[in-house]
Each structure stands twice: as C-alpha cells, then as structure tokens.
Amino acid sequence: MFDVESSPARSADSPDASSTVGRAQTPPRLEVAGSGPTEGHITLVWSVDDTAGELVFELQEAPTTEFAAAQTCYTGGDRASFRSGLPAGEHAFRVRSRPQSSEAWSAWSEAVTIDIRPYPLAKAWTLFGIGAFLVVAITGYLFVASRRRNES
C-alpha cells in the first residue's frame, strides 16, 4: 500500500563512491519506520551491527536508486530522520557510516524508496467544502440562536 521498498543502492555509480576507503565496515541497515505516501513524508531509521565507538552517519536522498543527483540530507550521530514536504514522484534514500575518529566510510546501505502520490485535489476540495459548510452552519446557528435567546 505504501509503495515503500528496499533495493540495492548502486553505490559504485555514485559520484562519491571513491570516498569509501579504509577498513571495510558493514553498511548500516536502513528501514522505514513510518510513511505518508499521500502526505509526502517518511520516517527512516537505521542501525549497525558494529557498536564499537561513536559513529557518524550520512543520509542521502535522490530521485532514483541510481543516486545520480543525490543530495546529503543529514550528517550526524542520530539513527533516525523524518523527511517531509516531499513532492510527488519517487524518492530514494540510502545511508552510510564511519567512526567519528575516521574518514573511512562504510559502503552505502540498501536503498529505500517511496513513491509520493498526493491525494487528488478534487477529493481534497470536496472534503474542504463539506467541512467548511459544517463549520459555517455551526457558527451561524450558534450566533443566531444565542442572539435570539439573549433577546428573549
């Protein structure tokens, strides 16, 4: 239903693949903790097997799992990130880690993708219209009724 899936990130094709140097680290596991494909948001969590020392993570977002036009959306020690305001279309995410004391990044995790498909505007405006009618009816009735009662 959510159209959220994992697929191997093609880190070899990414522009910064060469920066993955140093000792081999297990890449983090990236998972979806929650998502709103119609509302344009996703909560990502990641974990690593290697618990030794403080780790720094880099989370990237791109329109496809090719990660050709990837943007780093977070770098730091947190192990979760809530991304919102995502426009319609596919969004891919991946994460990698390194020890705080080292520049050697792990390989990228498997990518997670989400297909943002906002509700049709016609449906949105229909609900908006019904809601507006009800609120106006409540306010109008209360205004008229309380004035009448005050007068009487």
């Binding site: 709103g36 119609t38 509302e39 344009g40 906002p118 509700y119 049709p120 505007l121 449906k123 949105a124 405006w125 609900l127 908006f128 019904i130 809601g131 507006a132 009800l134 609120v135």
Partner: peptide, 14 residues
C-alpha cells in the same frame, strides 16, 4: 494546494 493539508483543515477544526 497541498491536498492532505486541505483535507485535514476542517477536520481538525471540527
């Protein structure tokens, strides 16, 4: 014109 927000607006109010 964010559809989800438009839909939620009066729901929250009610």
């Amino acid at each position: 014109l964010m559809p989800a927000a438009i839909m939620a607006f009066f729901n929250n109010m009610l």
